[in-house]
């Protein structure tokens, strides 16, 4: 088998051809998958007290990075771009300023960056990293929900079979799992706060599901 991590100059140049700024110009307004739910208005007129708080982090840059975790050059390149080493331990995540990196599988990471920086980060990766790797901007394919509040664990227990006890699910742990018959990437950001990365096509379903499931606790939408 040939060494996939050694590339000719022509092949290296070819990997840079795929970079495209996916953020449209100011004449086109970006809309999150939950645009129709109008969470901003709900945050103003909806209840202010409740056991579960929901906030959408919309229009973030989602980058899926795949590389060989045994290639030290690529790991070093990723660290130069992100300012922090990729988490190699299963089910862990790291944060570096406004960037956050989630372990998804032994050779895959999901990186969230501010929406307007996605193109810059992607370009940096193309400049820094050589060899056989994949970086895909999947920003349009998913959105991020932040769930918090005193009853958030009770809510999530009704949605997923993952054990959320702090001993087994400490802050920073990230799992990709079945969520309300759909799927979600769940990360614990605090004792009573979680972050969900959900599919665009399932976002309306999950929004309806969360409203229904959180009814007994009271749902507070935050802008």
């Amino acid at each position: 088998m040939s060494d996939l991590n050694v590339m000719t100059a022509a092949e290296m140049a070819a990997t840079k051809a795929a970079v495209m700024d996916q953020v449209p110009g100011p004449e086109i307004q970006g809309q999150s998958p939950l645009h129709h739910a109008d969470l901003d208005s709900l945050a103003k007129v909806g209840p202010k007290q409740g056991g579960v708080h929901l906030r959408e982090h919309k229009l973030l840059g989602h980058l899926t990075l795949r590389l060989n975790p045994e290639n030290d050059d690529q790991l070093a390149a990723a660290e130069r771009v992100l300012g922090v080493a990729l988490p190699l331990q299963p089910l862990t995540s790291v944060e570096s300023g406004s960037y956050s990196v989630r372990w998804m599988s032994p050779d895959e990471w999901l990186i969230l960056v501010p929406g307007l920086e996605a193109f810059d980060v992607e370009s940096k990766f193309r400049d820094e990293m050589g060899g056989h790797y994949s970086l895909v901007n999947s920003s349009g394919g998913s959105t991020v929900l932040e769930l918090s509040g005193p009853d958030v664990v009770e809510l999530l227990k009704r949605c997923t079979s993952i054990d959320l006890h702090p001993k087994l699910f400490p802050v920073g742990k990230v799992v990709s799992t079945v969520f309300a018959k759909s799927s979600a990437i769940i990360r614990r950001t605090g004792e009573h706060s979680f972050e969900l990365v959900i599919r665009r096509s399932f976002s309306d379903y999950i929004w309806l599901w969360l409203q229904e499931t959180s009814r007994e606790f009271g749902l507070v939408v935050k802008a």
Binding site: P90, L91, S105, P106, S161, I162, V175, T177, V178
Partner: peptide, 12 residues
Amino acid sequence: PHCAEYREEEEF
């Protein structure tokens, strides 16, 4: 063996 933990069958 990759996630290094037990999960429910519905994930597989």
